[in-house]
Write a protein that binds this DNA or RNA. Structure first.
Length: 324
DNA sequence: TCTGGGGTCCTAGGACCC
DNA sequence: TCTGGGGTCCTAGGACCC
């Protein structure tokens, strides 16, 4: 599968998430590189350190994106900082970067996408509506293929058309997402709430070379994946409060089963036991009506909590003498 | 086109509580 | 015997992002 494609490869029609075979047909002369995620993590950390020289508030959005909060500065100053960030990334880390500058993160993100490759786009506060209006609704983060089809079915293709829609009418089609879309289109986006730092979920997936058709094939995979997950979380100092198992079936549909633990657990044992139990329940329930094959299994831990942050237990209250 | 391995957020129904 | 109006938590599934 293509994880990322250079702009040269993209000119041949190669895109990320494309099956490797299809990409090879489009660009037979392409150079293929295996991924090196530890390297990307190290680099992402260097980039965040560099960015923090420009603002105390750096919000990582993904491994290769971050928002830098500049506060209330004139747009000329914001542009200067953007240019400087781009120059330092180039000279110190040898990295190209695209930057968007705006008065909200979501518009800055949309501008960044438009600035690729390697550009800077600054959207003046008074230009937000005009900047967004001609763009397709798909330019909005959170609008994917399904939402695009829904919007198209009511005659909305661009953000400008979205702005003219009545919120009440759109809510019938899209639920609460409608309000966010319309306020963005009208140039007054609701800034997403600050997310607490630290991961909330940790999961691991494994796709079988050949789809598994028996519990005996699935159980050892679940068991070893869960143990690895529990061990690495333990090394990072995390406990977990819920465990889940999911199957991707041969027809690519998904089923999942999860459970909240009675108390936060730590290490490989509890997650392994829970994963095997849940996996078996899921398997038995799904195969009761006929044979099925599993393509991918995944094990998930949720409600992660740093070890230092102990979960309160009844004992704590008794010791403290707090009675209600 | 025949699909990897991570993640986040939202919705909806049911159980249960006051 | 049938009846309110809230609220939270749990579970399953879906859409989306990189």
């Amino acid at each position: 599968m293509v994880l990322s494609a250079s702009y040269e490869a993209r000119r041949h029609g190669v895109k990320s998430a494309m099956p490797a075979q299809a990409a090879a047909r489009l660009a037979p002369e392409a150079t293929w590189l295996p991924p090196d995620f530890p390297k990307y993590e190290r680099t992402a950390s260097e980039v965040r350190t560099l960015l923090s020289r420009f603002s105390p508030e750096v919000i990582p959005l993904s491994i290769d994106e971050a928002a830098v909060v500049l506060g209330a500065v004139p747009s000329s100053e914001a542009r200067r900082v953007a240019e400087e960030i781009q120059r330092h990334l180039r000279t110190e880390l040898n990295l190209p970067a695209s930057l968007g500058v705006a008065t909200s993160r979501i518009v800055a993100k949309i501008a960044t996408d438009r600035a690729k490759p390697g550009g800077i786009i600054l959207v003046e506060p008074t230009d937000v509506v005009a900047f967004l209006a001609p763009l397709p609704v798909r330019a909005i983060p959170g609008v994917g293929p399904k939402t695009e089809v829904l919007l198209e079915s009511i005659g909305v293709r661009t953000i400008g058309e979205l702005a003219r829609y009545r919120s009440r009418d759109l809510e019938r089609v899209l639920g609460s997402f409608a309000r966010d879309l319309i306020s963005l289109a009208r140039g007054a986006p609701h800034e997403s709430r600050e997310v607490e730092s630290g991961p909330r979920i940790r999961s691991t997936d494994r796709t079988f070379e050949r789809d598994a058709t028996s519990w005996e094939e699935i159980a050892p995979a679940l068991s070893s994946m869960a143990e690895q997950l529990g061990t690495s979380l333990g090394k990072e100092g995390y406990r977990y409060g819920a465990v889940g198992v999911a199957y991707r079936w041969g027809d690519f549909s998904r089923s999942q089963r999860g459970r909240v633990l009675r108390a936060a657990a730590e290490g490989p044992g509890p997650v392994r036991d829970a994963a095997v139990r849940l996996g078996r329940e899921l398997w038995e329930r799904a195969t009761a009506s006929g044979a099925r094959s599993v393509r991918t299994v995944s094990v998930r831990t949720e409600r992660l909590l740093p070890r230092s942050q102990r979960q309160a237990s009844l004992d704590d209250f008794e010791r403290a003498g707090a009675v209600n």
